[in-house]
Design a binder for these strands. Structure first.
Lengths: 191, 191
DNA sequence: TCATTGATACACCGATCTGTGTAATTAGTA
DNA sequence: TACTAATTACACAGATCGGTGTATCAATGA
């Protein structure tokens, strides 16, 4: 149990702990008392930094909206590498699915803001795929990007239930088949 | 708001209402008081039929473990028809993702029984795919069945967030591409 | 007619939830 | 030293949660 250093700014400490608990156990399953107790601060202090639990939940999800890797490796390698990274995530004990999908499934219609963040996250990844497919000169980069994103989401959902890391490999195999069918070649970056 | 007829057996009425509420709003978000009030019965009556909320939740999920359609249509048509049915589900206002994935995402480690039911559900659909792929004479029916199941789960997760029914079409396109690459032919049932 | 069964209303339990009010305490700084 | 700002402990509010106890009432069938 790695606790955030007491030296860090309070807001950051709260966010890190909220992330660990909300993601690991679920948003509704974790109360603000639990978050505060886990850091060793009073509930009052937590509420001095976030006006409500809803605000804390949104901040937790916003923190997970990180920019995607901007590598200079070949596009095909980057695309397939996504599934390898996914497989490595499956191997960690902390992995518990997609934080955004889980939040939407848990909160449903109750929070439009949560859903907007989830859409933003999903669309960012889809566009990341599409940018790489563009460089590969694929015929329908938009459609294929959606399909690749579908495979990622499917692998995550399937793993969440089955806990079988092979789901990442199955998704990668499917991605390779789709890419091959679309005419992706090995080193197509510049020609 | 269609309420189950008061003529139906009490247990069935409870289950139908629990299904509608648990699936529509989430398990943790709906209390037993709400379920009883929605039917117009006392909480006591509900507890006379189910010993606990956990038992009610399990019964709700078990009721969703229905056998998959056993059609005599061509295998390829049945497989692709799955994605058409999915697309039609997306069009309904009630659709809120996969009840089993949502339950696991919501309850997480807290209920092994829920996860077991979810695994059973997912595996049944995967085996249904595999049986059809067997009849198509596909080289690796097991692997392709997993990939098709991944596409279904991915489309559901993506739709849950984006609310875009086109996710079903994207999954169907990907499925067709995978099937074509695997050598599935139009009318391969008997030769 | 009488006994049984199931449903009813309703109060209640202890626990937990988000959120607030308040007064004391700490630490840094002018 | 004196002021300020953050954090503390702690009680409390009002709601909701899952679950129970109990006494009454209505329908059924022997």
């Amino acid at each position: 149990m790695k606790l955030p250093s007491a030296k860090l700014p309070m807001k950051q400490r709260i966010l890190e702990t909220a992330d660990r608990l909300f993601y690991g156990r679920g948003i509704r399953a974790v109360g603000v008392d639990t978050v505060a107790a886990e850091i060793g601060i009073s509930k009052r202090t937590l509420y001095n930094h976030f006006p409500s639990k809803d605000a804390l939940v949104l901040a937790y999800l916003e923190r997970r909206l990180q920019p995607l890797p901007d590598s200079d490796r070949p596009p095909l390698e980057q695309i397939l590498g996504t599934f390898d990274r996914l497989g490595r995530s499956f191997g960690t004990a902390e992995f518990r699915g997609c934080a955004f999908v889980n939040a939407v499934a848990e909160l449903g219609e109750e929070s439009a803001a949560v859903r907007d963040l989830a859409i933003e996250f999903k669309e960012a990844r889809r566009l990341w795929f599409r940018g790489l497919l563009d460089r590969l000169g694929i015929a329908d980069p938009d459609g294929l990007a959606t399909q690749l994103a579908l495979l990622v989401d499917g692998a995550i959902a399937a793993f969440l239930v089955r806990r079988d890391p092979a789901m990442a490999l199955a998704a990668k195999d499917a991605a390779m088949a789709l890419l091959a069918q679309a005419g992706a070649r090995q080193a197509p970056a510049d020609r």
